[in-house]
């Protein structure tokens, strides 16, 4: 039984992440009065890209070729080490907050290097913007989850999920505050509005898309898939750390099924939230983004002061 649970934990994020992207796109299409592509379209895109030949710049080095595999692997590892539907995986030594945050940063590091590698002006500026935003996001991200760690007396994500769910209702004010901070960093890390436009190909505004402009074929598929994974990872962190009710504490089947169902519901709500947000606000000017990120950091500091 637990082998099966491990397997689910391992493949759930990569399996469902394209669907999440599809759902967000579908809702956005509805907002724009379009029918939109099917929610399964991201799967078809990935399938198509994996079948295609690829072009690699003659200026690129091994970093460019290696980065997609590494970045994708990191998201798979992260997906397996965060709480999704059950807290029984808590002895996992990869679930420490700092390990998770620095692994995310490691992926960004290689993505930014790959962006510079082919010597295109787009890639370079994409990397510069990405690293600027990522560097300023790290503080808010770490401190918003740290609030929970202080409340739960552990930096292990599974233990956090377990302990937060047993907190009394009244101690939740600071956690909501920290959630606000987390949402800001989530939008930043996953290249969403108001930080970045995931659908744009207008070079003046793009961050993430500019970095990966040189990729094609299977490597592009891996990078796109990794980005989708990262999106779902952040949604899961938001859903399961800040609102951890309904996660199964045992490895019995009925609990697990219920937990999986609740997980799907929570993720769906967050997807709708992101889609509504993207449809209702405009992208910010690049130099206004730090204000937002510092706000996230300050919010986390306030919630930490409240919780201790």
């Amino acid at each position: 039984m637990s082998v099966l649970l491990w397997l689910i934990q391992l493949i759930l994020i990569p399996l469902l992440s394209p669907l999440c992207i599809g759902i967000v796109r579908k809702i956005k299409a509805k907002f724009q009065n379009r029918t939109g592509a099917s929610v399964l379209q991201p799967y078809r895109d990935l399938w198509k890209l994996f079948q295609k030949d690829e072009v690699i710049s003659k200026d690129a080095s091994w970093i460019f070729k290696f980065a997609p595999y590494f970045i994708y692997s990191i998201t798979v590892i992260l997906g397996a080490s965060i709480p999704i539907f059950s807290t029984i995986f808590y002895p996992n030594l990869l679930s420490d907050i700092l390990v998770v945050i620095y692994l995310i940063a490691l992926g960004t590091f290689f993505l930014a290097l790959a962006g510079m590698d082919s010597g295109s002006a787009f890639g370079g500026f994409g990397s510069s913007r990405e690293m600027t935003v990522a560097a300023l996001t790290e503080g808010g991200l770490m401190f918003s989850i740290l609030t929970l760690a202080f409340a739960a007396h552990s930096t292990n994500l599974f233990v956090i999920a377990k302990n937060i769910s047993s907190l009394s209702f009244f101690s939740f004010a600071p956690i909501i505050l920290a959630f606000g901070a987390f949402i800001i960093t989530m939008l930043s890390e996953t290249s969403r509005f108001p930080f970045d436009n995931p659908a744009t190909h207008l070079e003046l505004t793009m961050i993430h898309e500019a970095m990966i402009l040189e990729y094609s074929g299977k490597r592009l598929a891996l990078i796109e898939w990794a980005a989708a994974n990262k999106f779902l990872i952040f949604l899961s962190l938001g859903a399961n750390l800040f609102f951890p009710w309904g996660m199964s504490l045992t490895n019995c089947l009925s609990d697990t099924l219920l937990a999986l169902f609740l997980f799907a519901v929570k993720i769906l709500i967050l997807c709708v939230f992101v889609a509504v947000l993207e449809s209702s606000i405009a992208k910010f000017r690049f130099f206004r983004l730090p204000d937002l990120l510092f706000t996230s950091f300050i919010l986390s500091i306030i919630s930490i002061s409240l919780i201790i």
Partner: peptide, 29 residues
């Protein structure tokens, strides 16, 4: 709190700085 915050930002900025160093020294044309 100040120290932890500063260390968190330092980590991110150091990563950015070394993308800059490595990228502009060894990568591209």
């Amino acid at each position: 709190l100040t120290a932890a915050g500063s260390l968190a930002f330092t980590g991110g900025l150091a990563a950015m700085c070394f993308v800059k160093v490595f990228g502009s020294t060894f990568l591209a044309r």
